[in-house]
């Protein structure tokens, strides 16, 4: 797949729009990113287990099933660009 086509597909997958005039700078960022990845790929990882947690620990505690205060609806909706009937309104996200 052509590089621009790939970036357009990725943008579509994560539902952001990319303007044509932004494409050259996006490609540049993408190249830098690939260079970083190339550096990482040089590291020898044969036989190395993925590290998820810095320490090998297990915990034993679980949270008791209790209810706490809920998020104030005005605060919750404060950052939303559009609100309708106390719900967050977004562009239609199904075809």
């Amino acid at each position: 797949m052509d590089e621009k086509e790939l970036l357009r597909q990725l943008a579509k997958d994560i539902r952001i729009s990319v303007r044509d005039e932004d494409m050259p700078s996006l490609c540049q960022v993408y190249h830098t990113f690939l260079e970083h990845i190339a550096c990482l790929e040089k590291i020898e990882t044969e036989g190395v287990e993925p590290l998820v947690f810095p320490f090998d620990v297990e915990i034993h505690e679980l949270r008791e099933d209790e209810v706490d205060e809920v998020y104030d609806i005005d605060d919750l909706l404060k950052n939303a660009k559009n609100v309708k009937d106390n719900q967050i309104l977004v562009p239609k996200v199904v075809e």
């Binding site: 949270r63 209790e66 706490d68 809920v70 609806i73």
Partner: peptide, 27 residues
């Protein structure tokens, strides 16, 4: 049918007014 959610302390309900049963963790 727990009282609170899987990872937060917001209540588990059905049919409440929209966005009133939410915890900061859920958001």
């Amino acid at each position: 049918k727990t009282k609170s959610k899987m990872f937060s302390m917001a209540p588990v309900t059905f049919g409440c007014p929209p966005n009133t049963q939410v915890h900061v963790i859920d958001m």
